Computed example of a mutant assay.
Amino acid sequence: MGEFDAIRPYSDAEVPAVLSRLLADDMFLDVLTQFRFPKLAKAFGWLLKPLIAHRLRKEFKDVTCVSTLQDKVELYVDHSIEQATDGVTYTGVEHLKNGSAYLLLANHRDIVMDPAFVNYAVYHAGLPTPRIAIGDNLLQKPFVSDLMRLNKSFIVHRSLTGRRERLAAYQLLSAYINHSIRNDCQSIWIAQAEGRAKDGDDRTDSAILKMFHMSRKDEPFADVIRSLNLTPVSISYEYDPCDQAKARELYIRSTTGTYEKAKGEDDQSIGLGITGYKGRVHVHFGTPITENLDDSKQLATEVDKHILTGYRLFPVHYLAYAMWNEREPELNVPEADLLFTGAELAVAKVEWQRRIELCPQEQRPYLIVQYANPVRNQYRIKAGLPL
């Protein structure tokens, strides 16, 4: 058994066997049937499942490696993006050079679509897609683990409770990330913090930056970070399909001090995040951080500046900020009508009002903060104020 076998993505040699296992997995076929035929699945699932399995076996019979699989899947990803967005744009991808590997450190709003949109940008730029960090809390079903590891995902063990076990897991993770970039020349995508930024306040967890250094502690921290080509990535959604659920969670946490996820809640978030309307989406790739920062907290502050300034603000963000009771007059944030055309703003006002009306009155402040925080953060950086 190899050093990284417990967490690494599947290799090309493993692809045919894993695909065969997936297409014989009853739970996986159930999910596909419900997704493809939501109105017929309950009554006719017994008939539809074998037909879907047969079609997929035929379509994927010649797939023998990860890159060919990604070429096939990309058609479905592009279709999903076309259906659920008003277009995806990206900037800075020219900073990524073929033949080099990067540690892509991104803000985190959506469980599946954050890395999917990064992959979309990189793939369409003709570059190899990164390996994707995914928490083991999302891999409770074997078919989900198979699916993700086929698509270049590797496992982050977050559910371990023992201190010694967690330390060993992060040591292994650190070694794998370093090995991937320096030995395999394969880029890595990882979120800047565990869990989504449900209040729209994107911040880098310095513990993650320390983790990158764990397996090379005999080397200076700044040298290790430079060797990994740490590149901040900003993913901006005009609208968050999960904003109502996030507002509810934030409200419950604020009023009770805790929040317990219902069974299947992560699955619902994944489904809504994939299929729900997002408006426009923008992905910005920064340049690798080369500053001589020997302290993880200083580095976290620098990464935050890159991610927050790279975030694209849409009309809805300014509309939310204007409603926010914690807005800061000294930031001199302009009114939305000074930045956007009348037609663009009119469309945004209708959609924003619809979302406000969908949200229960007591939860509305937690909906507003999700869209207002990116404005506050970006303008604080512009004003030279601390975050």
Rank of each mutant, 00 (worst) to 15 (best):
I155L: 13
A101K: 15
S80V: 12
W324D: 03
I134L: 11
K97A: 12
F154A: 04
Y311M: 13
V112K: 04
R355F: 00
R216V: 06
L313Q: 02
V369L: 07
A116P: 02
V224H: 03
F154I: 07
T275Y: 12
K58H: 08
L272E: 13
D205E: 15
V350T: 09
S187W: 15
D110R: 03
G135A: 11
E74I: 06
T68C: 10
N183W: 02
V369H: 06
T256C: 03
L319P: 00
K72E: 10
N107Y: 03
E82R: 14
L228G: 04
R196N: 03
A262D: 09
V347F: 00
R182V: 07
K49L: 05
G45D: 11
E59Y: 07
R164K: 15
I368L: 09
N151W: 12
D243T: 07
I155H: 14
Q268V: 12
Y170A: 13
T129C: 08
K217M: 12
L96A: 07
H282A: 08
T309Y: 06
Y277I: 02
S80D: 08
T64V: 13
P50H: 11
G126T: 04
F314H: 02
S100C: 15
V88S: 02
I181W: 07
K297E: 15
I235H: 04
R248H: 11
H317C: 01
D78C: 09
F154V: 04
G271Q: 13
K217G: 07
V156A: 01
F143C: 00
K305C: 12
F314K: 00
L40P: 00
Q361T: 15
G87W: 08
L308H: 06
I289N: 05
Q268D: 12
N137C: 10
T287L: 12
K297T: 14
